[in-house]
């Protein structure tokens, strides 16, 4: 079967330096079998000699290299381990074994608008969000205008976020994500936001950075994979089952349940 074989296609980026090197990554989650929350149950379980949880292998030996300027799409069904992989790359989760080596700054967007507070103004939120991503105020000053312009929200920047519509909110968050100056961008399911005009703008933007910036994108949209990615990885049950060009992976993904 073609999809079980792991083939790495030689592409134009394989000569670029490796910016992310993932080696044999394992990550387990402990799932409580009964209500193991609270002190009482914990003591009870200890006394009975019950573990109180079962281990779920979310990542089961993942290895791959990312070369500079590759736009990698990570696809797979719900619960296949995509988001866990992304969080491990972002160092939010620590793997049981295996290693992740990253050269350069990595800007993770597991969710848009992390730490956004409705009672702060849009401007304050941009700086807070930037600080969370590791940018100093000076670095944010440099990016600020671009972010505001891309979001097209200049006249609203001194308004509190709670007065924003959800569309404006997500536009601001998204603009920070794509304007943040990092070497590597991690994005989880965030391509289509805002109204049609803004979506078009985002699409144009992604098309323009293809081949110029290292991006890792987790998505369910095969259209996005085909359009923007230079390479795609299919994950099933915590293992890479296909690592190939976008077209091949998109087709394999769509065949998963047909």
């Amino acid at each position: 079967m073609a999809k079980k074989s792991t083939t790495i296609q030689a592409n134009t980026y394989s000569n670029n330096p490796v910016v992310i090197s993932v080696k044999n990554l394992h990550k387990n989650f402990k799932l409580p079998t009964e209500r193991a929350w609270g002190l009482k149950q914990a003591i009870f379980n200890r006394l009975k000699g019950v573990k109180g949880y079962k281990e779920l292998k979310v990542l089961n030996g993942i290895s791959f290299d990312v070369h500079q300027n590759e736009f990698i799409g990570i696809v797979g069904r719900n619960g296949s381990g995509k988001s866990t992989l992304l969080k491990t790359l972002a160092k939010i989760y620590f793997p049981e074994s295996g290693s992740v080596e990253i050269s350069g700054t990595l800007v993770p967007f597991i969710e848009l608008g992390v730490g956004f507070n409705p009672d702060l103004t849009a401007r304050e939120n941009v700086y807070l969000n930037g600080a969370l991503l590791g940018f100093s105020n000076k670095e944010m000053d440099a990016m600020y205008d671009e972010i505001v312009d891309f979001a097209e929200l200049r006249e609203f920047m001194d308004q509190k976020l709670k007065n924003f519509s959800s569309g404006m909110n997500v536009r601001l968050a998204f603009s920070i994500a794509i304007r943040a100056k990092g070497d590597i961008l991690l994005l989880d399911e965030v391509l289509a936001v805002g109204d049609a005009a803004f979506q078009q703008k985002c699409a144009d933007y992604f098309a323009s950075i293809k081949g110029h910036q290292t991006v890792i994108l987790v998505t369910h949209s095969m259209d996005s994979v085909r359009k923007y990615c230079t390479r795609a990885i299919l994950i099933e049950k915590g293992k890479i089952t296909l690592d190939s060009d976008p077209e091949t992976v998109a087709n394999a993904y769509q065949k998963l349940w047909s």
Partner: peptide
């Protein structure tokens, strides 16, 4: 919310 989404 922060701890689940960003690394610091």
């Amino acid at each position: 919310d922060l701890i689940r989404k960003v690394c610091f």
